[in-house]
């Protein structure tokens, strides 16, 4: 029986026009949100682990009311239960505060492993898994491009520019997975129906024994001073190949002194 908690984030849709609020935080109101695509890979890997043996997957999210959508999607994919931590005081939290809330919530759950995505698609720091491991005093096997679980040992492959590594850890473990681990499944009709009956717990900071002064924008350890949209690119020249497209391309390159 392997109990896996998967931390998933509700993020603004990358294909929409993402922008900021007046306080320089990410606009989460006016842009449609969804379960971070990179966290779907974590849900998928967790489901594969329990399907290969016996176990349960609980998805955990920290976020505003709409973040319930992210939990629902993961339940539709096949996770067994959900936990949604929502509290106005959490708004604007940095990675440190988020990791605190996640760690406290995980401690309240029964678990053997905690899975994460490699990075959120909005903040994309890629540090929350490490921070949660640090707070819980657990081994962290991160940026996995392949995950294998044997008993209570997790083995991963980790690819960097310099090397391909194999890493393993035993006991309670924190794992983060990349989008190299293999496509995530789509919810089936059966999955969508079943999700409606799955239990979702709603917790606040008080349930986790966290004081409001430990989280939120005012207590962040960094601040965004300003944001500037990228200047629009001036429209370029587009030609249709009529047998001389390659030559024309090189003429352009030569005009810019690349050739």
């Amino acid at each position: 029986m392997t109990k896996i908690v998967v931390a998933v984030k509700y993020v603004p849709d990358a294909t929409a026009d993402r922008t900021f609020e007046a306080d320089n935080t990410v606009d989460r109101e006016n842009v449609d949100g969804l379960l971070s695509e990179l966290d779907e890979y974590a849900v998928e890997q967790a489901l594969q682990v329990v399907e290969a043996g016996e176990g349960e997957v609980t998805v955990l999210t920290v976020g505003p009311a709409d973040a319930a959508d992210a939990v629902r999607k993961a339940l539709q994919m096949g996770a067994d239960s959900g936990v949604h931590v929502e509290d106005d005081a959490i708004a604007g939290s940095d990675a440190f505060a988020t990791s605190l809330v996640l760690a406290k919530a995980i401690e309240k759950l029964e678990y053997d492993m905690v899975f994460f995505g490699m990075a959120s698609t909005d903040g994309s720091m890629g540090v929350v898994p490490t921070l949660v491991a640090e707070r819980l005093g657990l081994p962290a096997v991160t940026y996995a491009s392949e995950v294998t679980v044997e008993g209570d040992t997790v083995k991963i492959r980790r690819d960097s520019d310099a090397a391909t590594q194999e890493i393993e850890a035993s006991g309670k473990v924190v794992v983060s997975v990349t989008d190299q681990t293999g496509e995530a499944r789509y919810p089936s009709f059966k999955g969508i129906m079943a999700a409606k009956k799955k239990p979702v717990e709603e917790w606040t900071l008080a349930d986790l024994g966290i004081d409001a002064s430990e989280v939120g924008l005012d207590n962040a350890w960094t601040k965004v001073e300003s944001y500037t949209p990228r200047p629009p690119r001036t429209a370029g020249e587009i030609i249709t190949d009529e047998g001389d497209g390659g030559v024309k391309l090189v003429e352009f390159l030569a005009s810019k002194k690349f050739v």
Binding site: R233, G236, E237, I238, I239, T240, D241, G243, D244, G245, G246, V247, K248, L249, V250, F252, L253, V259
Partner: peptide
């Protein structure tokens, strides 16, 4: 996004560009 674009088949355009360079 482009400063210069070619609408065409890369299998034709790229070898020709490489030759020209």
């Amino acid at each position: 996004l482009v400063d210069f674009g070619v609408v065409g088949d890369l299998k034709q355009v790229l070898p020709q560009a490489t030759e020209e360079i």
